[in-house]
Design a protein around this nucleic acid. Structure first.
Length: 467
RNA sequence: GCCCCCAUCGUCCAGCGGCCUAGGACGCCUGCCUUUCACGCAGGUAACACGGGUUCGAAUCCCGUUGGGGGUGCCA
């Protein structure tokens, strides 16, 4: 039997990294078993039906290379099937109408000394359908539901602990629990792979499944949650979790996918950074962890850096375009002053040093604007300009030599070395700080020779004045 | 409160009863390379939550405790 999995997000705005991870694991499972993946948008709630929300899901998935074989299907367009199912459940006695508000139900529960979760007050009351009526599923009073979860093993829920949950709202629309069961059955889903936050809904869906006589149930696998530093479930409100935002900040899709694959799963041979093809080959659903995983941007940075360094330099230059022209990143220079040929010249050196594309401007800003800023409080400045020996003399010497030195890398380098030798002090780092603003960066002289002599002289003087 | 899940270095992963004086990666620290920084290379730091069992033998199995998390909506 072909395995069929589905990624079934609710369209609640941008796709976040947790959802992307769920999609990825479904995809990995489908690919590794030669199965199929279905994309299904769970928009049973009218508030979620906005076209821009669909785009916010589809585009990032495409960018990551997570493909699907069918869909997107929309639950909203399948509503009639869900309505029919609800009707069937009412007719078969598995569900009933209820006209109590939540507050009323809670009040009754409190009065009776029952937990607030109990909702069976309208059972057997013969209530007719009406404008304020919901339909509730009548959960069995005895017995239990056993989930055979691929990742977690056997998980048991006592039926008495399950409240009579709502399967149709008072506006007539069925809730996701029914839609989920009906659609998974109709779409012949064999494996339901989703976040652990949905584990508690699974027994309800299984109960519906049996009441609807759907036969064999899919196999379930509940993924560990992705959490923030406080170990709380990643949330759109609180955490930076927009997949698209990471991508536009200069993370490569391949690196993102690689990192996501490593959250909750690891290859048996300890080789973490590897092509997706190998990951598919090694991926085993039963080897997925149970414990939640922290989404660590520091590690993402490292992985991304590896991927960037592995790029052919032409490709690196090509992909850097939005970042050097300030489309996707802050730039410190005037667009008119940007010189593509200069960036291309130093690109290979920059490529080695950045771990995201948005880090590029930091390394090349001094090449495209007249002024650089100096941070006299920074470690770099202090180390080079305060602790260094003979700094004023060195800067004066360089400035003097640069007035008529031949404006080539070799000559400039030699001139600076000469100044250092004459004073028996290190001259290269002070020169770098004065010219670029920092003590860290790409090889200096070839790049510096592309700047005007006047500009360099002015920077030498500016740095000198700060001593 | 109730239900459910989880528990190996700071973080991510390996380990599925003996190969473990617990391995890899990120981070951090040290050194080498280097006229800066980075890359690279060589080292170092650091963990089986606790308590009981089971077993000749437990990080691995069972129970409990503690801690963390998720759910508890006419959201999904």
């Amino acid at each position: 039997m072909t395995t069929r999995v589905r990624f079934a997000p609710a369209p609640t705005g941008f796709l976040h990294v947790g959802s992307a991870r769920s999609a990825l694991f479904n995809w990995l499972y489908a690919k590794s078993t030669g199965g199929e993946m279905i994309l299904r948008i769970e928009d049973t709630d009218a508030a979620l039906r906005k076209p821009e929300f669909i785009d916010a899901i589809v585009k990032p998935l495409q960018t990551l290379g997570i493909t699907w074989d069918e869909g997107p299907y929309y639950q909203s367009q399948r509503q009639q099937f869900h309505v029919d199912a609800v009707e069937q459940l009412v007719e078969s006695g598995h569900a009933y109408f209820c006209n109590l508000t939540r507050d009323e139900a809670d009040a009754l529960a409190k009065e009776a000394g029952l937990p607030a979760g109990y909702h069976g007050w309208s059972r057997d009351k013969g209530i007719e359908d009406g404008p304020d009526c919901v339909v509730r599923f009548r959960t069995p009073d005895e017995g239990e539901v056993v989930i055979h979860d691929v990742i977690r093993g056997e998980v048991r829920f006592k039926n008495v602990e399950l409240e009579d949950f709502v399967i149709r709202r008072s506006d007539g629309s069925p809730t996701f629990l029914v839609a989920n069961a009906v659609d998974d059955a109709d779409m012949s889903i064999t494996h339901v792979i989703r976040g652990e936050d949905l584990l508690n809904t699974t027994p309800k869906i299984m109960l519906l499944w049996d009441a609807l006589d759907f036969g064999d149930k899919p196999t379930y696998a509940h993924l560990p949650l992705l959490v923030n530093e406080q170990r709380k479930k990643l949330s759109k409100r609180r955490d930076d979790v927009s997949l698209m935002e990471f991508l536009s900040k200069g993370y490569l899709p391949e690196a993102m996918v690689n990192h996501l694959a490593l959250l909750g799963w690891g290859p048996p041979d300890d080789k973490e950074i590897r092509p997706i093809g190998e990951i598919i080959e090694l991926f085993k659903l039963e080897n997925v962890n149970k414990g939640s995983a922290f989404f660590d941007v520091t590690k993402l940075n490292h992985i991304n850096g590896e991927y960037i360094r592995a790029l052919p330099v032409e490709e690196f230059i090509e992909m850097a375009q939005p970042f050097v022209y300030g489309v996707d990143a802050e730039i410190s220079w005037d667009k008119d002053d940007y010189k593509p040929e200069v960036f291309e010249m130093v690109a290979a050196d920059v490529q080695q040093r950045v771990d995201t594309f948005s880090g590029i401007p930091h390394y090349i800003g001094w090449l495209f604007s007249d002024e650089v800023s100096y941070d006299v409080e920074s470690k770099g400045w202090k180390k080079a300009m305060v602790k260094g020996k003979m700094i004023p003399e060195i800067l004066d010497g360089i400035a003097e030599a640069f007035v008529d030195v031949e404006w080539t890398a070799e000559a400039m380098n030699a001139a600076v070395a000469g100044v250092g030798d004459a004073l028996e002090a290190r001259s290269q780092v002070p020169a770098r700080v004065a010219i670029t603003g920092t003590n860290a960066g790409i090889p200096l002289w070839d790049a510096a020779a592309t700047i005007d002599r006047d500009v360099v002289l002015r920077r030498l003087a500016a740095a000198r004045a700060l001593l």
